[in-house]
């Protein structure tokens, strides 16, 4: 049985577990909408002709949804799975570790796809957001979600080696995610941030994901307001691919099955 097939079976099982934890499902899927509502209600001004803050903000919300449902979720729940003995049991079977990773990726990808659909539907209904205007942009949205899910998943798995136990994991992971969100232009207009912040954020994939999402949701005329005056789609693709590969290698190298 191939690694991929077993991985998809794991994905099916993990999806069932995900959807059966009601509170967590509601929170994960509706939190971005809540934030969108709050920020959209506070900042009613336009940041450029025809570009409301909400229109700018949805890009950040989708990108940070990727970080939350992948990196943050996994870096917290995998140490818990170690505590519960889930991983010890899996280690004792012929399941390839990569199949376990694929199972996680399935959940992240499904969860983010639902979040994006909800955000876009909600945004269109209540904040009159514009949907992507060309098939090019829709295609970009798809590969951004896919690559973003992979990066977020593998980096979450890699980071899960850091917390000593499930109980302390959230305290270690959450601050990192929040700081990264501020630095990457999720909550504010990126180019308004101090340049050292911008440069620091450029080291991590979230900044590039957010920028990519802006290129999907904002008019092309807005590109001149980006740091380099263009959307840098090609560069974003390369950087995210590099993070996906590096993250996968890192995840395989650092993955721990048990709390020593």
């Amino acid at each position: 049985m191939s690694t991929l097939v077993i991985g998809l079976h794991r994905g099916k099982l993990e999806l069932k577990q995900f959807f059966r934890q009601r509170e967590s499902v509601v929170f994960t899927l509706f939190f971005p909408i809540m934030l969108m509502f709050i920020f959209g209600s506070i900042f009613k001004n336009s940041i450029a002709p025809g570009v409301t803050f909400s229109q700018y903000f949805i890009a950040g919300m989708i990108a940070s949804g990727l970080v939350n449902s992948g990196f943050q979720q996994l870096a917290i729940t995998i140490p818990m799975e170690r505590d519960f003995g889930t991983l010890k049991r899996l280690r004792g079977t012929p399941m390839p570790p990569l199949s376990y990773f694929i199972g996680k990726l399935v959940v992240v990808a499904v969860s983010i796809t639902i979040q994006v659909a909800l955000l876009m539907g909600f945004g269109k209904l209540f904040f009159h957001l514009h949907m992507p205007t060309s098939s090019d942009k829709w295609l970009r949205l798809v590969w951004l979600i896919l690559l973003g899910s992979i990066c977020s998943t593998v980096l979450g798995i890699a980071f899960s080696a850091v917390p000593k136990s499930g109980r302390g994991a959230s305290a270690v992971v959450s601050p990192i995610v929040i700081i990264l969100q501020f630095f990457s232009g999720v909550f504010f207009v990126f180019t308004d941030l101090p340049s050292w912040m911008q440069q620091f954020a450029a080291l991590f994939p979230l900044k590039w994901l957010t920028q990519g999402m802006r290129s999907v949701f904002l008019p092309d005329t807005f590109a001149v307001k980006e740091a380099t005056g263009t959307w840098e789609s090609g560069r974003i693709l390369i950087i995210l691919l590099a993070w996906a590969v590096a993250g996968t290698v890192l995840a395989i190298k650092t993955f721990r099955w048990s709390n020593k």
């Binding site: 059966r20 010890k88 049991r89 004792g92």
Partner: peptide, 14 residues
């Protein structure tokens, strides 16, 4: 091989 663990408490929702 098959292993029966001493104390696992996983998979509660399945």
């Amino acid at each position: 091989i098959g292993i029966v663990l001493q104390n696992a408490s996983d998979a509660g929702d399945l």
